[in-house]
């Protein structure tokens, strides 16, 4: 499913989206499939499947550790696409990974493998717009959205040029720093949401871990919230994972419902 279709569907209901991140293969391929099912059952509208990289510079400790676990358990790009193809949930799947894995596979092949395994968006946190030309073209040819990030320190001029390339949604980094749960989210988020006049939906991520923060972000004008580390922490605990994932997704989704 394409991301735009999902947002159109939500718009008709005047709902906002919950975008959930988990790291593929953490702790195993089978577990990830069940976790994705639990997320969707709980109310996640879009699922980001992290393709783990050995050196994840944009991630905090929670997702770093998940990446290490997944890599140790044998996750690799071939397995990743195989796994994605076997997931049949009625939500868009997005690949979040670092550029070297894409470069090594070849941008065209990577985009094609996404499209053929049912992945309709790619997020690459270490690929700023200046360096994204080749992948952007490959994504366009294969009907995959390349999702760009903007941050509180991105200038208006840069935002304008990024918006010119954006498709799917615009990933708004709530505050400076790496991924991970935080207590303060709202401050700079409101300011940046106001600065952006986007034709694609705006989704706020980095630091959001509960329904209160989600409600603040939605209230500030975001079309979606992105939650990652909070789900990954549940997976790391190994305790009653699927039902707790489903419950947390459900709770946060309540903040997104009109």
């Amino acid at each position: 499913m394409r991301i735009a279709e999902k947002f159109a569907e939500l718009k008709r209901r005047k709902d906002k989206a919950l975008i959930a991140y988990v790291c593929a293969g953490d702790p195993s391929v089978e577990a990830t499939k069940e976790i994705v099912h639990a997320l969707v059952k709980g109310g996640a509208d879009i699922v980001e499947l992290g393709l783990p990289f050995s050196d994840p510079v944009a991630d905090g400790p929670t997702i770093q550790e998940a990446s290490t676990r997944a890599l140790k358990a044998g996750m690799n790009p071939d397995l990743y696409f195989e796994m994605a193809a076997s997931i049949h949930e009625n939500v868009p799947l997005i690949c979040m990974t670092y550029y070297n894995l894409i470069y090594k596979r070849g941008t065209e092949k990577f985009a094609r493998d996404c499209a053929s395994s049912g992945i309709t968006g790619i997020i690459v946190p270490d690929l700023p717009s200046e360096e994204s030309g080749e992948l952007h073209e490959a994504c366009k040819r294969n009907g995959v959205d390349l999702i760009f990030l903007v941050t509180p320190v991105t200038s208006d001029l840069r935002i304008k040029s990024i918006l010119g390339m954006a498709s799917g949604f615009l990933y708004i980094v709530s505050r400076l720093g790496v991924t991970g749960q935080r207590t303060d989210v709202a401050g700079s988020t409101k300011d940046i949401l106001n600065r952006i006049d986007s034709r694609v939906p705006k989704a706020v991520g980095f630091g959001i871990s509960n329904k209160e923060q989600a409600a603040e972000v939605i209230h500030a004008g975001s079309d979606a919230v992105i939650v990652g580390s909070a789900f990954v922490s549940i997976i790391a605990s190994g305790d009653n994972v699927n039902s707790r994932i489903e419950r947390l997704a459900h709770e946060i989704k309540q903040s997104c419902i009109n």
């Binding site: 510079v57 270490d126 700023p128 200046e130 760009f148 903007v150 991105t154 840069r158």
Partner: peptide, 12 residues
């Protein structure tokens, strides 16, 4: 070469 870094670092 190039600048393959998170968007947050581009202005810096």
């Amino acid at each position: 070469g190039g600048q393959f870094v998170p968007e947050t670092l581009m202005p810096a």
